[in-house]
């Protein structure tokens, strides 16, 4: 088995005349934490949805462990059993309790076993058993994110996806979530792909950072290199300046 867990070649996706991903290429190495940064509307979420099979790209190949992914192969290799996903808004199921949410994807187990698994995962994300029987609407935003994180790791996945993990959280809670992500990646031994525009978060959780702009990767490197990337686009983005080569179209 090669060291590459995910390989994306010449990915292209557009909505109508608007091109979102354009000749997108990336190689993700096993057991690394890859963070993809980029401004709003640069195609970060579309990229994740293409990998997860929620959107069909028009061109390009996405390979997982050397298997090109499509609707059929995702079923054949049980792709969804090997991944975990933390959605931006947590996306917990309102009608299910916390423990039912966490163990949702685990089939063929007794209720007592499922509660044991939920308890184990909830401890991993720093919560205790008192939340197990609560509904998502009874939890704070930070707790919802933690429960969603527990759900993402419920099946001990090989590949974890984080979509804007710190969006909507206060700085302290954002730091807590960042630490949790690092701990969990170490504990589970998974490869992580995170998309974010939060630079603090990116620097904290990344082994490697890539910047997405106009549908393509324009820079890749280690977190320590990003400050001296000599790339004007990266420089403008990480310093949060409105002046520079990245022009904001108000209509976007």
């Amino acid at each position: 088995m090669t060291d590459l867990i995910l390989k994306i070649e010449k990915l292209h996706k557009s909505f109508g005349e608007k091109v979102i991903l354009n000749d997108f290429n990336i190689n993700i190495t096993r057991n690394t934490s890859q963070v993809i940064i980029g401004g709003s509307g640069t195609g970060k979420s579309v990229l994740l949805k293409c990998i997860l099979g929620l959107i069909e790209p028009e061109q390009g190949i996405i390979s997982y462990n050397n298997t090109p992914l499509n609707r059929d192969t995702r079923k054949e290799i049980n792709f969804y059993d090997e991944i975990g996903m933390l959605f931006q808004g947590a996306a917990l199921f309102d009608s299910l309790t916390v423990w039912e949410n966490i163990t949702f994807a685990i089939k063929s187990k007794r209720k007592s076993d499922l509660r044991e698994i939920a308890l184990d995962k909830i401890h991993k994300v720093g919560l205790d058993s008192t939340v197990l029987d609560l509904y998502p609407s009874e939890l704070s935003g930070g707790m919802q994110k933690r429960v969603a994180l527990a759900r993402a790791i419920a099946k001990d996945p090989q590949l974890l996806f984080f979509d804007e993990p710190t969006t909507g959280l206060d700085p302290i809670m954002a730091d807590v979530i960042n630490n949790l992500i690092n701990e969990i990646i170490d504990q589970v031994g998974a490869t992580a792909i995170t998309i974010t525009h939060d630079m603090e978060s990116a620097k904290k959780i990344a082994d490697k950072i890539s910047m997405l702009y106009k549908g393509s990767i324009i820079w890749s490197g280690d977190p320590g290199e990003i400050e001296c990337s000599n790339n004007p686009y990266v420089d403008q983005f990480i310093n949060g300046r409105s002046e520079g080569p990245i022009k904001i179209n108000i209509k976007d």
């Binding site: 949805k49 997860l52 099979g53 929620l54 049980n78 969804y80 059993d81 991944i83 975990g84 996903m85 959605f87 931006q88 808004g89 996306a91 917990l92 199921f93 309102d94 949702f104 994807a105 759900r151």
Partner: peptide
């Protein structure tokens, strides 16, 4: 509402 809050996408990623 489930679609807007990405719960439908979450179902797919949970093998459902």
């Amino acid at each position: 509402t489930m679609k807007v809050t990405e719960q439908l996408d979450a179902l797919t990623t949970l093998s459902t």
